[in-house]
Amino acid sequence: MAYKVSKDPRTDIRERTYVPNLLRGLGITAKHFFRNLFGTRDTNTQVVDRTGASLMTTVAYPEEKPIYPEGYRGLHRLVPREDGKPRCVACYMCATICPAQCIYIEAGEYEDEASDSEDRVIEKYPTQFVIDELRCIVCGLCVDACPKDAIRMDTYMHTPPEYTRQNFVYDIPKLLKGAPVSHPSDPWNKREGSEEPHHVHKEAHTRIGEGLVELKLPHGEHGGHGKALPAGAQAGHQAVVTQQGPIQVTKFIK
């Protein structure tokens, strides 16, 4: 049988006669009603920061768009290189990790010494890179898995609606967008071609002491040592000269 609220000894006359508390409840709702009726709604998309008499928490979507938080996982994009081709090397890491199995890749091989653009030192590239956005669960594991920073979800876009399922299958032309990205560790920043250089420069670990001695000097002798310095300011200390010019050395912090 139902629990008798009215027999609870903790209640008093207000609860047991119902009516006063009913009226109080009506007062609360009436207060909300009038505040929202007469108050002008603050249209700040950050709802918690809203002020004013109106208590409404609505964000009227198409007219007012909330700003997505940092790290929001939006539509995928393939990151382009400086020459406009995708950074992707078709390693299948994303396809392997994808729990929804929505990524399909076919790998191809660049012709040997095809051009003098970045792909002169790249062997493998995706001839097909397809993401089924309907199957995608937007978990972002592909971005984490990518060893080449080639797939990102930083478009801050939803998948736009389409009329057919096939249109949700994104291929390279649809995925390749955004600003090009280049890292110092990219192979085209390290070498001229994929064959052995004619005059091999000695690599760092064969030059005993070179490039390492001055790094061990106490910090006081180098003002601002350790901070981000303009490239070349301390090139002798922090960079190693190769035939391609100075390359910043990234010290691995253990």
Partner: peptide, 26 residues
């Protein structure tokens, strides 16, 4: 009744509002 709140349970037991055996209202 509407504009007042519940009486705290008797001066001595003022702190024990939540007690089930509350003689103040018996």
């Amino acid at each position: 009744l509407t504009t007042t709140t519940k009486v705290p349970a008797g001066g001595a037991h003022g702190a024990h509002v939540g007690h089930g055996h509350d003689h103040g209202h018996a």
